[in-house]
């Protein structure tokens, strides 16, 4: 048995415990990702302009990530590419999650044939291989920014729909919701005061954990040539171009962009998982 005895309240301003650590991780990840996104958004296209005098320069102080076959600075191009991917990924995830929220809530609240229909859609979507469906939709919509964004939107809602539906089902059968109906509340009032506030935490975490998927899938589809156009800086485009030169020892063309993508994806996971820890009552007090 541990022999600490009770009650000493810390008077210290700052206490290093799991909650502060986890919060710092989340803040760091958010700052990094938002920073890259904004930097890329407002970047001067000149900084990654074509310069045939400086083709295939290996990484140095002027070009930390080297340059490519047209002499474009890979560092700036990576930032711009990652920024594009982040913006498309976040947008696509957001819209995808709206679909999930709407479908999940509708399926749980209305039940009956609505529930059956939503489940059928979820099964249909999850039954097909993810990437195949993505390529199919993107190709159908004429590829490009629109194609890939819509493809990601229409393929990423099923898992979140399931989560939302389960949460709604759980809260809907609770005594306080049943009592609210008996107190004369309408379905919409109950949804706004009881159901949505219960669902939002899981929904937000689900949404954040959707970002890395969306970004990865956008990059994959683009890499395979069914996504963003060649002239647009995108991680998928950069990686597929680098394939031509890898055999000739131009390692920096693939390694740095690949790492950037990896770090971004991992950081999103860090945010999602840590928020989950903070909001979960079981682990929240550790």
């Amino acid at each position: 048995m541990s022999t600490h005895t009770h009650t000493h309240t810390d008077k210290k301003r700052f206490e290093f415990n799991r909650k502060t650590f986890v919060t710092m991780m989340v803040i760091f990840a958010v700052v990094y990702l938002v920073g890259v996104g904004i930097w890329g958004l407002f970047m001067d296209p000149e900084s990654y302009a074509v310069n045939y005098d400086a083709k295939f320069v290996s990484p140095n102080f002027d070009h930390p990530f080297g340059t490519d076959f047209m002499g474009r600075d890979m560092f700036s191009r990576c930032i711009k590419a990652l920024s594009n991917s982040l913006i498309i990924g976040v947008l696509a995830s957001l819209f995808s999650s709206f679909i999930a929220l709407f479908m999940g809530v509708a399926s749980a609240v209305f039940g009956g044939w609505v529930d059956k229909f939503v489940n059928w859609c979820v099964d249909l979507c999850q039954g097909l291989p993810h990437l195949v469906l993505l390529i199919l939709i993107s190709f159908m919509l004429g590829k490009g920014v629109n194609g890939v964004t819509l493809a990601v939107i229409f393929t990423h809602w099923p898992s979140l729909t399931r989560i939302v539906r389960a949460e709604v089902m759980q809260v809907r059968s609770s005594q306080y919701v049943q009592a609210a109906y008996k107190m004369g509340k309408t379905k919409w009032q109950v949804a706004a005061t009881h159901i949505l506030p219960h669902v939002i935490p899981s929904y937000v975490i689900g949404l954040i954990l959707l970002f890395p998927h969306a970004i990865m899938h956008e990059a994959s589809v683009t890499f395979l040539g069914f996504g963003l156009p060649k002239e647009m800086p995108a991680i998928g485009v950069i990686l597929s171009e680098s394939m031509d030169y890898l055999a000739t020892g131009k390692w920096w063309l693939a390694v740095f962009p690949g790492l950037m993508l990896l770090v971004a994806v991992v950081l999103f996971d860090v945010i999602g998982d840590n928020l989950k820890k903070l909001w979960n009552p079981q682990s929240g007090n550790e």
């Binding site: 005895t5 009770h6 009650t7 000493h8 309240t9 810390d10 206490e15 415990n17 909650k19 502060t20 919060t23 929240g284 007090n285």
Partner: peptide, 19 residues
């Protein structure tokens, strides 16, 4: 026997013991 839970106060970053 004394049991206390080390918990965060609502919205705060400091932990206090709740006996």
């Amino acid at each position: 026997l004394t049991v206390a839970f080390n918990m965060y106060q609502k919205g705060a970053f400091k932990k206090t013991d709740l006996e």
